[in-house]
Design a protein around this nucleic acid. Structure first.
Lengths: 346, 346
DNA sequence: TGTTAGCACTCTTTTATGTTGAGTGCTAAT
DNA sequence: ATTAGCACTCAACATAAAAGAGTGCTAACA
């Protein structure tokens, strides 16, 4: 026994699809005319009345059509929507080939996504949590300055200047480099614990303060990117949807996009609740970000082996084209996986 | 002999100041009441009529007050506005102290600027044009991958992965490093010409292809940052000004901010026309960016010794508070100079 | 019993119609 | 040269009326 019989489902489906298109409340007559089940508007009205009572749709005011409620959207996404026949929205390959730096790849991805969907796209760089150190090097750049370069397994490069009281001679530098590499190579942020650190410092002897600095830098590197490497694109697309484009709402949303920090909670939320398909849909109040309660947010995570994950998200009006968005996200997800696995890049 | 006598100037000044405040067309009666010259509204009307004929002000429609024309604003900025008594809008020092990476400093600067002015702020990283190579290092990261690290005089670090067909032995690497450093050290992008390159390649012998790659990387580094390291903040501030916040205009503007490429033309324009004060004001159509013809743009350049310059800009409505903006820009400019000169940072 | 036609009713949207008020330009008086 | 006074204009606001879309309900029908 189900809450909704076949006919109610069909009608709900028709209502939502129509509303996704137009953004206008949809009336009984419209459904009566533009659906395969041949029913008069009166009958539809009765059914709609039921659907409203059950909470799937609602009336903005008496004598207007109905619009889907959050519950309605949810039902649509979970049960009604058909999987789109993945007609590979071929992401332009060349774009990936021709760009070299990861930031640019991600930025481009976001752009393509935003253009394809007409919503706002966000994408985070893979976070380093469990990423491992692969190469580490200290160089004397200046009398009083060392440069620490850190390369991780994903071929992500980070560097950091370290000020020292005095110059180190070549030999010491070499020793330090060997020490650091042998000790830290293959370790992830989590694996570098107090024990490791104590041992390192001991071995470094009088240069333990430099080791400290390097470790700080290392921590900073791991930290930093966890924070706010978020790329957005198509932020202005929200202005295309009247229900979001009034000054107040638009301003709040755009602000959230600019202050990328806020988006982090979205990422965390997404990572927390692992899902089989890897795609999640937040409708209205379900969204982890308060400002987005009038929106829907669809997120996916991509994997870059070894526990490095990134998040992709689309933010748009509740009446977004869920099928298209999820489809896009799915193909992008797989493509991202591919890119990062096949291509050694910086 | 001047086009405007003292009284007309005073009236024009009053009109503009009032309009900057309110954003509403200002009528003769208002001026008559709120100005020190004791004249009746009728007299003011006559003068205003003259001012209109001369093109300094205009009427949005018959029987509305007057608003400044672009010419009016220009006159105001050039002649009427008094320099604000630089009451050092002390940029919070700690912010500079606590952030370490240049990007963050710049981003923060932009934010402060946007918050201080309530307009949109943009700021570019110093461009490397004539910046010099200070340190250069190749390291073997992987069997088939070299990492090139480049440090410039401004202590800006860049790195680039280079794929090789096969691993190099330590000795060769050392030789290459020495070669590269001795040949390129102290040179700027412009100074690395074909002669240098030819000589380098010759000396590199069978490894000339690696040298090629390094040089490409180097060029890429110089190139890249010339392109689009632009930080913006407060983009949503434009929504606060009704004359800019209608959907069409807002959308265009916000887009321009997102597609930072467009902003580059602004930078170039600014750099091209050197000015004594270093502060430039573009009013309406004067702006190098088409989308901003309903805005005013104020820019400044800051210097980081050795021919490295960056640009700061404020974008707002034509009726922006020019005094405040220019003041802010001036102090920031000097502070930026200071930061980059006193502090060795990455 | 499920479906449908018909109708009264509701409420937004649109259009038309005043009304107000700020502001101007012009003329005549000071 | 300045000002008071007055007729005129036009956006902005406020109703008021009309139109239209949609509903709920009732009664008729298969």
């Amino acid at each position: 026994m189900q809450e909704l019989d076949e006919r109610k489902r069909k009608i709900l489906n028709a209502i939502i699809r129509n509303y996704l298109d137009t953004g206008e409340p949809v009336g009984s007559r419209t459904i009566s005319k533009y659906s395969d089940l041949n029913l008069s508007s009166a009958t539809i009205r009765n059914e709609m009345s039921d659907l409203e009572e059950l909470g799937y749709i609602l009336q903005p005011h008496t004598s207007a059509g109905r619009i889907p409620s959050d519950k309605g959207y949810r039902f649509y996404v979970d049960n009604l929507m058909k999987e789109k026949t993945q007609e590979v929205t071929e992401m332009k390959e060349f774009m990936i080939e021709h760009t070299e730096r990861m930031e640019q790849v991600l930025q481009q991805m976001a752009k393509v996504l935003a253009e394809n969907t007409n919503y706002t796209a966000m994408i985070t760089a893979p976070s380093y949590h469990r990423n491992k150190v692969k190469f580490l090097q200290l160089s004397q750049v200046d009398k009083e300055q060392l440069l620490a370069v850190i390369v991780t397994e994903g071929n992500l490069v980070k560097n950091k200047m370290i000020s020292t009281r005095e110059a180190l001679d070549n030999e010491t530098l070499l020793k330090l480099n060997i020490l650091l590499n042998t000790s830290l190579n293959g370790l992830s942020a989590e694996q570098i614990n107090l024990g490791t650190i104590a041992r390192l410092k001991e071995q470094a002897g009088i240069h333990s303060n430099i080791v400290s600095d390097v470790l700080d830098a290392l921590a900073g590197v791991f930290q930093e990117d966890e924070d706010l490497e978020v790329y957005t694109s198509g932020t202005t697309n929200i202005l295309k949807y009247p229900e979001l484009s009034d000054s107040r709402k638009a301003s709040e949303l755009l602000n959230a996009f600019e202050e990328k920090k806020q988006l982090v909670s979205l990422v965390n939320e997404t990572l927390a609740s692992e899902e089989q398909t890897g795609i999640q849909v937040y409708i209205g109040d379900e969204s982890p970000i308060q400002n987005m309660k009038d929106c829907s947010v669809v997120t996916a995570t991509y994997q870059l082996g070894a526990g490095m994950t990134g998040t992709i998200g689309i933010i748009g009006p509740k009446r977004m084209d869920y099928e298209n968005v999820m489809d896009n996200l799915k193909t992008l997800k797989s493509q991202l996986d591919a890119v990062f696995q096949n291509k050694k890049e910086n």
